[in-house]
């Protein structure tokens, strides 16, 4: 059966209510119901932009601060399930591509996008390897990359 990474709207106490959506990012069989018990909970997604602690609505209106959407995700587990062929839904694809776990589905490819994606990568993305050899390899790879991209 196909495994999917998708959102599940969860209305347990503390979860979603009317006009108050809250989602779990879950791994589940594709043909199960959306909110049924998943194989694994990988994180949460709050689609309502909220003001961070210490920021007021005035700050947001005046442009001094910005609202945030809070996303919690176990990056290494998500990476593992993507590696073994789990299919992300469009929304999960968009979210996970923001932190560089996937190629963005709709973003143009190019050096700018790649740079932006690299900036937000978590350390779990990088292959674990012994120190000296891997760092030099990475450095050379990056140099190669910077040479090739303008061409």
């Amino acid at each position: 059966m196909v495994l999917k990474l998708r959102l599940a709207r969860i209305s347990t106490p503390g979860g979603a209510k009317r006009h108050h959506p809250r989602y779990n990012i879950v791994l589940a069989h594709a043909r199960t119901a959306r909110d049924s018990l998943p194989l694994e909970v990988l994180g949460t997604y709050n689609p309502i932009p909220s003001t961070p602690a210490g920021v007021t609505e005035e700050d947001v209106r005046a442009g001094r601060a910005r609202k945030v959407k809070e996303i919690k995700v176990d990056v290494s587990r998500a990476k593992y399930w993507l590696g073994v062929g789990a299919q992300p839904s469009d929304t999960v694809w968009r979210v996970l591509s923001m932190i560089g776990l996937l190629e963005p589905k709709y973003l143009p490819t190019g050096p700018q996008t790649e740079k932006a994606l690299k900036a937000v990568r978590f350390p779990t993305h990088l292959p674990a390897a012994p120190a000296s050899a891997s760092t030099t390899a990475n450095a050379s790879a990056e140099v190669q990359g910077s040479r090739t991209t303008p061409a």
Partner: peptide
């Protein structure tokens, strides 16, 4: 708006899926 990501551990749910420290509803 900005997207604030936090890397969490999904394994805190424990064996019965009811771990108190676990993230997620």
């Amino acid at each position: 708006w900005d997207f604030a990501f936090q890397d969490i551990s999904a394994e805190k749910v424990g064996r019965d899926g009811w771990g108190r420290e676990a993230v997620g509803y």
